[in-house]
C-alpha cells in the first residue's frame, strides 16, 4: 500500500464517518459538526484527485459559509436546552431499506458498467489556470447565469428574513 492509498483511505474514512454522524446523530448540533468533518474529508478527496482549486473552494464556501449559516440557523431556531429532542428521526426502517436497496443497485450498476480505460499515467496539472480559462471561455454563459442566480439568492434571502411590516 502506497502513501497515496493510505491517504485516500484516511480521507475517505473521514468523509464517510462525518456523513454517518450527520445521518445518525441524535443531536442537531453534533450533526452540524459532523457535516464539517465530512466536508473536510471531501475537500481532502478533491486534493487527492489533483483538483486543488475545487478543494479550496469547498473549504472556503462550504466550511466557511454554508456550515456557519447552518449553525446560525440551528442556534436561532431553538433553545440550546431542547436541542437533543429536536433532531427526531422517524421511519428509519423503511428509509434504511430503501437506502440499502439504492446502495446495492448503484454498486451493481457500477460493477457492470463499461468504464473507459484510464490513461496509464495522467499528468497532473495545476487546476486554477485551466478552470479560470474554462470559466471565461467555454463556460462563460453558465458563469454569468450563476452570478445572476447568486444575485437572486441575495435579494431573496433578504426579502425572506426581513421583519414583516404592518400592511
Amino acid at each position: 500500500m502506497t502513501a497515496a492509498d493510505a491517504m485516500f483511505l484516511a480521507l475517505a474514512a473521514t468523509a464517510v464517518i462525518g456523513a454517518a454522524g450527520v445521518a445518525f446523530s441524535r443531536h442537531i448540533l453534533y450533526s452540524a459538526l459532523s457535516l464539517m468533518v465530512a466536508l473536510f474529508g471531501v475537500a481532502g478527496l478533491f486534493v487527492t484527485l489533483s483538483a486543488d482549486f475545487v478543494a479550496g473552494v469547498q473549504v472556503l464556501i462550504y466550511v466557511g459559509g454554508v456550515l456557519v449559516i447552518t449553525l446560525f440557523a440551528v442556534m436561532l431556531t431553538q433553545g440550546i436546552q431542547n436541542v437533543e429532542v429536536s433532531n427526531r428521526a422517524v421511519g428509519s426502517v423503511a428509509a434504511g431499506l430503501l437506502t440499502a436497496g439504492l446502495f446495492v443497485v448503484l454498486l451493481r450498476a457500477m460493477s457492470s458498467a463499461q468504464w473507459v480505460k484510464p490513461p496509464a499515467d495522467v499528468p497532473t496539472q495545476t487546476s486554477t489556470y485551466g478552470i479560470g480559462n474554462a470559466l471565461l471561455g467555454q463556460y462563460v454563459l453558465p458563469f454569468e447565469v450563476a452570478s445572476l442566480v447568486l444575485l437572486a439568492v441575495l435579494v431573496g434571502a433578504v426579502v425572506l428574513t426581513r421583519k414583516e411590516t404592518a400592511e
Partner: peptide, 15 residues
C-alpha cells in the same frame, strides 16, 4: 455512493 445513501437516509428520516 456511500455519501449519497447516507444523505438520502438523512433526508428521509429527519424531521
Amino acid at each position: 455512493v456511500v455519501l449519497l445513501c447516507l444523505g438520502l437516509y438523512c433526508v428521509l428520516t429527519r424531521r
